Amino acid sequence: MRSEPMRIVLVTPGGLEQRGGIGSAMTALVEELDRIGVRWTLLDPWAAADPVRQLAATAVALARLARLGLAGDVDLVHVNMCGGGSVWRKGLFVLLAKALGLRVLVHLHAADLDTSWARLPRLLRNVPGFILRRADAVVALGAYWRSFLIETLRVPAARVQVIPNGVADPGGTARTRRNGQRIVFVGRLGLRKGTDGLLHALATPGLRRRPWTLTLAGDGDIGGMQALARRLGIDRRLAFLGWLAGQDVARMMRTADILVLPSRQEGLPMAVLEAMAHGLAIVTTRAGAIGDAVTDGVNGLLVEPGDPAALADALERVLGDAPLRGRLQDAARARFEADYAASRMAASFLALYRDLTHAKAGRGVPSAGADVAPRRRLGQPSGG
């Protein structure tokens, strides 16, 4: 007899259209859930940046989770969590789900959980760990975040699992690279992504002499970075495109040679993985879990965060050495194929779902040939 399909609730701020890593990762995941017939329900606790609307959206999503739990219509709650205030808001979903007797997986995307935790008053520092220890499993994006969860927040090691982000394979799309000097930056412009340091690095004498161009795709402090570029005298070599949809980012990367992402804080940025998928040479920092994906001198060049001089040196190396650039590009694509395809990420989550729900009598993941159960979305995804 065929088992009933697994029923997953995804708590995803901003829905699948969210601008950033969570939306991209969850889109890749639900495509695989649809393919094999897992039922998923989306709860979006984020209506807008406005605190009142955000509170209302959170209350509605919590009420819907309670209704599903009381009706016995959920096997697992998958809570996507960032740092800062997200821990407190998503913690409500964790605590409610456990009060309803549900299995809970927390998927930690935080780039700043460590620093936001350190800024908390001492009396409140136990709260993030208390919330995360209530979960049946906590998924970290890399080794750094796994260590932080275990050593600082005291989450039991047996409950912490590393599942890196994954991105769709662009396949064998022809790449139209020219002189090796086309640089792209993808991310929210500002201090956390290190855009200011990048512009200072590009303004150094050695890099001024090279014929590079830089295209920046992302929202954030566009006006501030444009003004800085003008002050540094490099504005004519830069193009600010604003936020781009995924297909537009892919088109941009197909004509690029190098991705630069000098982040000061990170989880595991999708931009780096997308660049690997497109076979770009990567210049980035050792922030967060980036060092898990990029090995210095093998499939990219790594510098310390907040060091424009080191960043300038790395960019000079990759711009001026075509054989090095080619080796980095080939190795980046090979590393993507081995470890960072979206299908691999989805398979890891499905295996974890099975482990967490195996005690549910008669339930499991149907085979690929099974009838696909209809999915339901609750809440309105937003792009905020």
Results as ranks from 00 to 15, higher is better:
162 V>C: 12
154 R>H: 13
162 V>W: 04
179 N>S: 12
198 L>W: 02
171 G>E: 07
163 I>N: 00
158 A>G: 08
185 F>T: 06
144 Y>P: 00
200 H>V: 11
156 P>A: 06
144 Y>N: 01
175 R>Y: 05
180 G>W: 07
161 Q>A: 09
181 Q>R: 06
199 L>M: 14
172 G>T: 13
201 A>E: 04
157 A>R: 15
157 A>H: 13
185 F>Q: 04
166 G>H: 05
187 G>Q: 02
150 I>C: 14
143 A>T: 14
154 R>W: 06
168 A>C: 11
193 K>A: 09
186 V>K: 07
174 A>Q: 04
163 I>Q: 00
157 A>C: 11
187 G>S: 03
159 R>Y: 02
178 R>I: 06
142 G>Y: 04
144 Y>Q: 03
165 N>F: 08
198 L>V: 03
141 L>M: 15
145 W>A: 02
175 R>K: 13
174 A>M: 04
182 R>T: 14
197 G>E: 13
142 G>C: 11
178 R>H: 04
195 T>W: 04
148 F>N: 09
178 R>P: 01
152 T>I: 11
183 I>N: 07
149 L>V: 14
163 I>F: 00
143 A>M: 05
170 P>W: 10
156 P>H: 07
180 G>R: 12
166 G>W: 07
164 P>V: 07
147 S>T: 15
172 G>E: 14
170 P>Y: 07
195 T>E: 07
191 L>R: 10
176 T>E: 06
152 T>S: 11
195 T>H: 06
163 I>R: 00
167 V>T: 15
202 L>W: 13
139 V>P: 00
172 G>W: 07
198 L>Y: 02
154 R>I: 04
152 T>E: 13
175 R>W: 05
187 G>T: 02
167 V>D: 08
191 L>P: 02
174 A>K: 05
149 L>M: 14
201 A>V: 05
150 I>H: 05
188 R>F: 03
189 L>D: 00
173 T>H: 05
153 L>V: 08
151 E>Q: 13
194 G>C: 05
165 N>V: 12
161 Q>V: 15
192 R>S: 02
195 T>R: 07
151 E>V: 06
186 V>I: 15
191 L>S: 07
153 L>S: 10
170 P>A: 11
159 R>S: 13
178 R>N: 05
181 Q>E: 14
141 L>Y: 09
203 A>S: 15
158 A>H: 00
174 A>D: 02
171 G>T: 05
194 G>P: 02
173 T>L: 13
188 R>M: 11
184 V>Q: 03
193 K>R: 10
